[in-house]
């Protein structure tokens, strides 16, 4: 079964005809070629596919693309404008928070959702907010540092 849907991704409307069993991760990556959203497990265990849905971070691998219709979807590609990095992206670069980079898009989006809700979180709140985003490289220290540095600026 196919369905025609309109997705609002990074403030742009896309009209798509997709099989209804496609997840949002698949449609972002394969139809829209927004490959910044990563697929690490497909079952909500790792957070690599994190996107923002109406400002809230969710595992896009567990959202049917058809169910994303009518919601505002934000991916990592929507964060920087004309090459200007978002303050969180800049902080991740400066603090050495990125190693292999596979968790980074999701991690940054979870951090953004946190700061949008709570501009000056403590360390525990930061760790809590990114606890659904696994990172195997960094030990999280420099990720927490980066988020904290942006929180302070706010």
């Amino acid at each position: 079964m196919k369905k025609m849907i309109t997705l609002n991704v990074n403030d742009r409307e896309y009209d798509l005809v997709i099989p209804v069993n496609r997840t949002l991760t698949q449609v972002l990556r394969e139809n829209l070629k927004l490959t910044g959203t990563k697929q690490g497990c497909g079952v909500g265990d790792c957070g690599s596919c994190t996107i923002l849905m109406d400002g809230r971070p969710v595992n896009s691998c567990l959202v049917l693309a058809a169910e994303a219709e009518g919601h505002k979807i934000e991916t990592i590609e929507g964060l920087s404008e004309e090459g200007q990095l978002h303050p969180l992206q800049q902080a991740f670069v400066e603090h050495g928070s990125i190693q292999c980079g596979f968790c980074s898009p999701g991690m940054i989006l979870s951090a953004k959702a946190l700061l949008d809700k709570n501009p000056s979180p403590g360390e525990t709140e930061i760790r809590e907010a990114i606890s659904g985003n696994l990172c195997r490289c960094t030990g999280y220290q420099k990720i927490v540092d980066a988020i904290q540095s942006v929180a302070k600026k706010v």
């Binding site: 490959t35 959203t37 980074s104």
Partner: peptide
Amino acid sequence: SRAPRLDAPDKATGRAFYTDDLY
């Protein structure tokens, strides 16, 4: 020193290509 990594901006913005991103 503490140089920012060459690959970090691409990885932070989702532009970095991994094998599965190739079509």
